[in-house]
Computed example of a mutant assay.
Amino acid sequence: MLQALFNGLSGLFGFSKDLDNIGNNISNMNTPGYRGQSAFFENLADGDGTQLSQEFTDLSQGSIQQTGTSTDVAISGKGLFVLHDTQGNVFYTREGHFQFDADGYLVDDTSGYRVAALNSSGGLTDFTIANLTTLAAQPTTKVNFSGNLAKATAGQTGPNTQQVPGIQIFDAAGGMHTLTATLTDNTATTAGSWLVSVKDDTGNVVGTGEVRFGPDYTPQAGFSSFDLSLKYNGTAQKVTLNFGTPGAYSGTTQMPGATASIGAKVADGHGVVGISQLSFDTTGSLQVTYSDNERKQGPQLALAYVPDEQDLQLHQGALYSAPQQLSVSLGKAGSSYFGNITGGSLELSNVDLTRELTEMIIVQRGYQASSRVLSITDSMLQQLYSSTGGGGG
């Protein structure tokens, strides 16, 4: 009979700890990347009651929800993100709520640990955009002209000139300069000839040249472009003024009877530009878009694979560590057994609230039954004590 007391007590302890586990699951149902924990009871030898066996992790995929935050990432399929702290301790997680710190390192927003990327040899390195935050200035090397140059009309007095203002070019330091090109009809002297004079924003002439048009009204070979030799901040800079390809009508033309429509477009060059947008592709590579719409590829997220994730040790939040004897493979998303990355999204907890509430009811009933065993056993012991002389005068 005394053993019944200990059996009932073991039931109370077991159900109480199981309720702790259920409570932890429910409290983390909104924790991104959290995986529910389940515990099972096992019988003790010789009828000595019960105890909780090893806890198990629910490894099923949580639902993926868009967040609109470009640095949030989720894994669709197998794999774990890799983090490390300042002491070099490595952790793994499915929670991908990341952000860039002031130094350009991608860090876990919850723990502050740095996120790992893959280096060229497949090893781990810090995920950083310190060298990608801006694009260095690029000097302009070419300006393309297009449209039509109209000949002088009958009765027109003075020189036939057409002007192209507002040509904005960049020097090697990122400074912007505005040029104005003036084209003067020289066909009276040379057939199809137009003289070009270019001034800077102070009104100084910085270059001259000539463009000629053939019988097909397109630029002639040898007269379709010329170079400006400029100098800014002590640095020489050559800018080619291109008026089109001989025989092609996509550049500058001299069509009879057509109105004047000459214009210019700078082909290249920019000042120092910053990042306008960040995004992750399905392989976990960061795509960087700058304010001039130029794009560059950044680092690639490292993913870890463990054959049996039940062997991982759970830490705070949704972080895991691997025992020394555990084999961990590294790779990239979309390859081998690794899943794909979904950018701007988070994997939510895989806790099923309905299931947890059902388990809670079962635990409550088990706890009540174990408590009843103690109560009845105590009553029987009291009755036995009374019947064996406990009540004698």
Rank of each mutant, 00 (worst) to 15 (best):
Met1Gly: 14
Gln3Ala: 14
Leu9Ile: 12
Phe13Asp: 12
Phe13Met: 09
Asp18Tyr: 09
Asp20Thr: 14
Pro32Leu: 01
Gln37Val: 15
Ala39Thr: 15
Phe40Trp: 08
Gly47Leu: 06
Thr50Arg: 08
Gln51Thr: 13
Leu52Ile: 04
Ser60Asp: 11
Lys78Ile: 09
Val82Ile: 07
Asp103Thr: 11
Gly104Tyr: 06
Asp108Cys: 00
Ser111Pro: 05
Val115Cys: 02
Ser121His: 06
Thr125Pro: 00
Asp126Arg: 05
Thr133Gly: 03
Thr133Phe: 09
Thr140Leu: 02
Phe145Met: 11
Asn148Tyr: 01
Ala150Ser: 14
Ala150Gly: 03
Gly155Glu: 03
Gln156Ile: 05
Asn160Trp: 01
Thr161Trp: 13
Thr161Glu: 15
Pro165His: 07
Lys199His: 10
Thr208Ile: 02
Glu210Ser: 10
Arg212Phe: 03
Thr218Phe: 07
Ala221Asn: 12
Gly222Ala: 07
Leu230His: 02
Lys231Ala: 06
Val239Ser: 09
Ser261Ala: 01
Val266Asn: 06
Ile275Cys: 03
Gln277Met: 09
Gln287Tyr: 05
Asn293His: 14
Gln310Glu: 09
Gln313Met: 13
Tyr320Ile: 10
Ser321Leu: 15
Pro323Thr: 15
Leu330Ser: 07
Gly334Lys: 00
Ser335Ala: 13
Ser335Gln: 12
Ser345Gly: 03
Leu348Met: 14
Val351Thr: 08
Glu359Phe: 07
Gln364Ile: 08
Ser370Leu: 04
Val373Asp: 01
Gln382Ala: 12
Leu384Thr: 03
Ser386Lys: 13
